[in-house]
Design a protein around this nucleic acid. Sequence first.
DNA 1: TTGTTTATCGCAAATCCATGCAACAACGGT
DNA 2: ACCGTTGTTGCATGGATTTGCGATAAACAA
Lengths: 142, 142
Amino acid sequence: MSGHETAVARLRSEGYRMTPQRLSVLDIVANRPGHIGADEVWNLAKEQHPYVDLATIYRTLQLLKRLGVVTEVVIGNKLHFELSDHQTRHNHMVCSDCYSVQTLSPAYLAEFSQRLQQEFGFTPDLDNITIGGVCSICHPPG
Amino acid sequence: MSGHETAVARLRSEGYRMTPQRLSVLDIVANRPGHIGADEVWNLAKEQHPYVDLATIYRTLQLLKRLGVVTEVVIGNKLHFELSDHQTRHNHMVCSDCYSVQTLSPAYLAEFSQRLQQEFGFTPDLDNITIGGVCSICHPPG
DNA sequence: TTGTTTATCGCAAATCCATGCAACAACGGT
DNA sequence: ACCGTTGTTGCATGGATTTGCGATAAACAA
């Protein structure tokens, strides 16, 4: 039972309604250390609300992402989500070979982001950027 | 009829076979200024080979991407592709509101990329990184 | 040219995610 | 506590992309 109040307030203040389904999704993502796939969120949500539809899960996750409550991580061809904790904000590097995920301080992207903003007026969605590539194990130097 | 020989040689040297379908996809992407969607590649390919399957188009585009022959651009929920021209290499910024695409010199990402490589041994797939965000028109300052 | 190997293709089915719509329910007002 | 408005849901469907599999055809040797 952590910072749900903030998220709930965010929803209400923007004209959204708080439903049991949304609360459930929020709880599930918040209580999961690390990221979680949409299908897994669905499975857990069904334990509380047997009739929730997967479409509702997807819609809710996208909504929470738009509101900045959760962060999206692209792993292979699937989307994962985690709570956006402003205290421990980080980006993700995903290996396209082994699908391992490493976290990255947003400091690495700060200057890049600022240049895009200043020179192009483009505001990158930094939190939700997943950096694809090959990790050190799958692609050793030499 | 540009640098196809290079791509063909790349395929052969890596043990892949050159098929009419692959040549067709290569031609289509190469002759298109800018990026092109997979469905559009399919439509054009069917003019030459009426029986090509969409799955073949997708497989070929992914293969050419792995080989560095084409570059992937994520536009909304669709993938687009363009020829990887090492002379005019660039990245893409895509607005999540209006789906406009701006190009970006890879110089903006050079330092970032080097740091990931040096500090984590992570080799980002720079060419195929699409930077999502909100453009200056959709999100004016102030 | 012919034959052999095996990468590739076409087809069908599956996966992941998004969307249209009518029934439903959250929330503010009474 | 009830009502009305309208945002949300479940359901069904659709879109984009991937994958399994038997048939086909490149590539290469004889």
